[in-house]
Design a protein around this nucleic acid. Structure first.
Lengths: 341, 341
DNA sequence: CTGAAAGCGCTAACAC
DNA sequence: GTGTTAGCGCTTTCAG
């Protein structure tokens, strides 16, 4: 029946050509040991001749799996996230999985919509870093409920018990704060991100803990919480510098704000690191090459992606039911913006 | 039959519950006007109650389309490419398409494998920027042959007639070279990328043309061709600076090499832009914030992605058969590294 | 070692 | 406005 020119050849076409059954063809193409080498070869030859390409859609439907891993990130176009995606793709491809990708733009509504669509598309597993905004989690619980592997990376939801790949934000923040203290800075401010996200909460807590361990008085007015965009970095530093006792160092919740803060201060004639020390978080590519270069905490994005993919693939294939939280180490990178000794 | 607990409900389950036929359910869920409002509502209510989620796989198989757009880039983790991906995702999602993504790592073999896998997955269209290495195109011709929409962006294959979204590399290179000349640079070198890629070829030609129009003698020894990594940038600048008559300006084929070249020269005590002018290409995020900031050509990555997605979706939906090449304008961004006047 | 037959979940011509 | 039926292309029991 499938005789018209531009229809894709199917296993039936090649079966008919050889006057055998489609099941044999299917088995041969899947290297089923029950098929003799001879017939396998014949079948593969005809498949080639006809330009046969398996229809994965059909196979997926039949097998009730899509061979696809979904990944949703706040923003594709951000170095950390694109590194993670790259890592996921790297191992997923080698394991024969496709990767479908979407970005939430840090919007809860879009995230929900994406996640539901991925469910409908029967992704075999979902890797996600939640949007800043997201504060309801039914769309994600759906996955756990249906026993579809779910892996959080970076921004995880504490109340959902599943696999998580995070970095040790607390320790990173602690170390970078300690470093500022070691450099002789005494009055250290902090630009914090949304506190509903554990990453930013942990960073703040690491900072507070470092102050406490060093018996430095903790001053609430030195902490500013926003969403850590360039613009908000500028607003925050304005606010900090207009305090009666302005800080002599600022731990910025990410490199983006660290940079905008530095530029603002430089324009005010304030010297970095002499007058004020600046550190960031994430080790964006630019932080190494700006002047002064920015001290920061490196997060291994590519490795996180690889780990997330490895983990989810193991879950997909073994159906193992134990969850783990993998905490990857961060690295303190000391550069010019905080080195005054 | 579908009675076991953790099986997903299907339209048959909801049909049985209401003692109607599955087709009615299908039609209702797809808002087919032939179904009365009442039954639609009843059906949707039951669907909700059962937690029904359409199985897109099945629907796709039946409809012979996957609602999926494939995109393959050399490297996900590169600002320009992740911007393009972001743009593609942006419009694809709004139009109800999924985006599956893969990276070739600039390896021809991996690219071929990816593209074939995407074909087997029956992507409705493919958006691709080819790998540096790729010099055979059968895997791509397959798409044109089967009339599956194919859109090239940035790095296109001249011999395949299809839609293309490119930037005007020639004009960009011309303008940036002209800018160097306007700044009084006379002996301008060029770091070029692989010449099998039209992007890099066009950049070189734009450079040569600008020299010619300005009656500047063209010196072959001032052009170095490599793959434009940081390391190769350093090797290239070493070679250029050891010429009997070294250049007084270098047009680097991308910002990455521009940066590594600058760092090398600075370490040698050569001043930029006073002693030597540097320009790059692509406007990587870092080029704005390094010191000196790098003059460069901005390519609208996000817009390219949006355009590519719009174009391919129109092709997917209309089956229109005319191809177009959209050339997006570039923008010359003059910064410190080339401004000595 | 191979074939027949059923079915994955959905859709759409065709009937009424 | 709704039901019947067949089938998308593949896999997989069950038989032989």
């Amino acid at each position: 029946m499938n005789r018209n020119k531009n229809a894709e050849p199917t296993i039936h076409d090649i079966a008919r050509e050889l006057e055998i059954s489609a099941s044999t063809v299917s088995r041969a193409l899947n290297d089923n040991p029950r098929i003799s080498l001879k017939t396998k070869e014949k079948i593969k030859a005809v498949a080639d001749k006809l330009g046969y390409r398996p229809n994965t859609l059909a196979s997926n439907l039949r097998n009730k799996k899509s061979n696809t891993i979904g990944i949703v990130v706040p923003l594709i176009n951000r170095h950390f996230f694109s590194s993670v995606i790259s890592g996921v793709e790297d191992v997923a491809f080698k394991a024969g999985f496709n990767v479908v990708i979407s970005q939430s733009n840090d919007l809860a509504a879009k995230e929900i919509s994406i996640v539901q669509s991925m469910f409908s598309n029967r992704v075999d597993g979902l890797i996600i870093s939640i949007a800043m905004q997201t504060d309801t989690f039914d769309h994600l619980k759906l996955f756990s409920k249906k026993h579809i592997p779910l892996v959080f990376f970076d921004r995880a939801v504490p109340e959902i018990e599943t696999d998580k790949i995070v970095v040790d934000d607390f320790a990173g923040a602690y170390r970078v704060t300690q470093h500022l203290i070691d450099q002789g800075y005494q009055r250290i401010g902090h630009l914090a991100g949304p506190q509903n996200l554990t990453t930013y909460l942990d960073r703040k807590n690491g900072y507070i803990d470092a102050l406490r361990k060093n018996r430095i008085a903790f001053d609430e007015s030195l902490i500013i919480v926003n969403t850590l965009t360039s613009e908000e970095g500028v607003l925050a530093v304005q606010q900090l510098m207009s305090l009666p006792e302005p800080p002599d160092a600022i731990f910025c919740g990410n490199d983006t704000t660290a940079l905008s803060v530095m530029i603002y201060l430089r324009n005010k004639g304030i010297r970095i690191p002499e007058d004020i020390g600046i550190v960031g978080f994430s080790n964006e590519p630019f932080s190494k090459v700006v002047s002064p270069s920015i001290s920061t905490i490196a997060q291994p994005g590519f490795e996180m992606g690889q780990k997330a993919a490895e983990l989810i693939i193991r879950k997909i294939e073994n159906k193992e039911r134990t969850y783990q939280t993998i905490t990857l180490p961060t690295e303190l990178i000391i550069r010019e913006s905080s080195s005054r000794k």
